[in-house]
Design a binder for these strands. Structure first.
Lengths: 194, 194, 194, 194
DNA sequence: CATGAATGAGTCTTCATTCAT
DNA sequence: AATGAATGAAGACTCATTCAT
């Protein structure tokens, strides 16, 4: 098997498992088995569990970006861009409510391993750039700040949605939440005052 | 030694350690040692690690509620209440940025153990009640919805603040964030339209 | 509560639990709880788990002897005595198939604790005396030897019956086994030769 | 090292230790040490202590069958076969008096673990087949029944012999017991009545 | 590239036993 | 006579990681 394909298959499996269950609950054994290789083979491709998890995480981020960014940018008016942003973000969250948790875990590991999560900064910056740009087009006073809040809100919602469990999800009126966010985040102080 | 005091001492230590480091990184051994009792003694008071973590988490929640709720309610005008809410929430987050992560971990464990996080629902409800009330006084159209968003935003911010690490925290202009949240969340649609 | 009654209640509970489950699977905690006293209280009455088990075992033996011996001796002819012996032995075995196992466990413990199972010898002697007497009355050539074999057979049957499990018990045609034992064990060599 | 050899070496050591001392008294640590591998290595080959014990038990059974069955079948007349059966059974019992106890323990564990002792049924059937055949050749009325009794008697004797301890073994006149069993078990009702 | 055997350190948990009160 | 808090030792089991082949 080509080196590339195996690596990618491993990343896919790892991302899937790590997104589903906690870091410490997913063993290298299980990943190897699901990929269809041996534990030894797994370590040939990734020098440690942490290394694998980190790469799997950013593999997930890239997937997300690749899927969402173009869709958003293809919208015409700033309003439509923002609507698309909300729409696709929610879609992603509802489908991957556990990614935030995985992110957190990898971060936690990065601390133990001493070396930070370097790639994250670049990613976050890229994100702020894009989303901040949209808020700027919307004429919002502090676009970058608002982009930070928007990102935080999404992650927080994912968490609460996750913890609510199947029963508690009735609480979450997704459409209403989207509308409310739309209204709140495009709000421009001056409008009121004016 | 009285049962109550030991239990409380254990809960305090556990909360501290679990808030600082990941669930799987804190061993019962370490907790016991820090409390100053034997591992056996620890298990005498809490039948399992999960049980201890769960109780420690809600012990933390209660501390939070006991500290924050009265302060908020003692403010006079709705605006002041909301300001106090933001103020003290941020203060708490900045001091306990890892509590959200611990919360998530306990939730994760609760799934493994089959029994949900029953106490959480009650706690969340109480929270929605109080915060929703404030938004209602502010004349916001969907107070409960906004309370949900507010709570999610806080948790999300805590996460991002946590992950930003010491270097990245320059990004976070706390005062600006507070102001922005204050403006956005008290925003009333009708004002604009009117 | 009087010292005597508590002791006896403990013995009863212990015998019941030890007969049902393995020695190492029954904790002092469980015994205490079932008796309705504290662990400390249990240790007040019996200095160790082994001591308790030993006494519980012989308490069981005594119960058995008290129940069975008189019934057997009250029969008239030797044949009837032997029939009663078989009858009541089977009855006891079918009701307490696990007593043999408990016996074995206590014996095993006695080795670990260095001191043998002194009381057993006396008990075994008493048993051989009684059962040997019956075989003697039956005119069997080596009554004592046969009593040993009879006792061993009963214990062996109890074991196999136990291990057979609920499904395998169809194998055991109790009545046929009784008849066969009756015939075989009262067999007198001379009859054949003569 | 080849998988097969290590596995077999483990089984041998385990059988030896489990036959010598009680299940709960033999730790995985000890087995590993005696085999000369690490605890982890032991668990690599056997997923749990119970699994190891079970396999070791049947390994012992097979040894027994492999040793005894051919010897018995090679005898010529039914009488000689029966004599050989008794002879070699006693030899085995005297050398492995604790195997019955180990058997019992594994059975006990099998209950705790929910899954029965499936392999035992097959083994017991094979045993009944062989021994029942011998009794049939001897012209005994209920050969299968008698085979059951014979097997039970052997196990029971092993137990009593075990419990008698070194001092009490004077009681056991092995040769006399063999003779007595030989006479009793080949006894044919009709001979008497006829 | 990949395997599978093996390691070793770590973790939770159980439990008989003790002792101050 | 009895309690309950606490101890300490031991045990099963997991798992990331290594390495000869």
């Amino acid at each position: 098997m080509g080196r590339k394909e195996t690596r990618e298959r491993i990343l896919e499996v790892a991302l899937e498992l790590f997104s589903e269950r906690a870091y410490d609950d997913v063993s290298m054994e299980e990943i190897a088995k699901k990929v269809g290789i041996s534990k030894g083979g797994l370590f040939y491709h990734f020098s440690s569990k942490y290394e694998l998890a980190k790469e799997a995480l950013f593999y997930g981020f890239e997937q997300w970006a690749k899927t969402i960014f173009p869709k958003i940018l293809s919208a015409e008016s700033p309003e439509d861009k923002f609507k698309a942003l909300i729409e696709y973000s929610f879609e992603f969250i509802l489908n991957n409510p556990k990614l935030s948790r995985f992110f957190l875990e990898v971060y936690e590991e990065s601390i133990k391993h001493g070396n930070g999560l370097g790639q994250w900064d670049a990613f976050y910056e890229e994100y702020l750039e894009l989303f901040g740009g949209i808020f700027e087009e919307l004429g919002v006073p502090n676009p970058r700040l608002r982009a930070m809040l928007f990102g935080a809100l999404l992650d927080g919602l994912a968490l609460h949605y996750l913890v609510a469990g199947d029963e508690g999800r009735g609480y979450f009126d997704i459409e209403a939440l989207k509308r409310e966010i739309f209204e709140m985040f495009r709000y421009r102080e001056r409008e009121i005052k004016g």
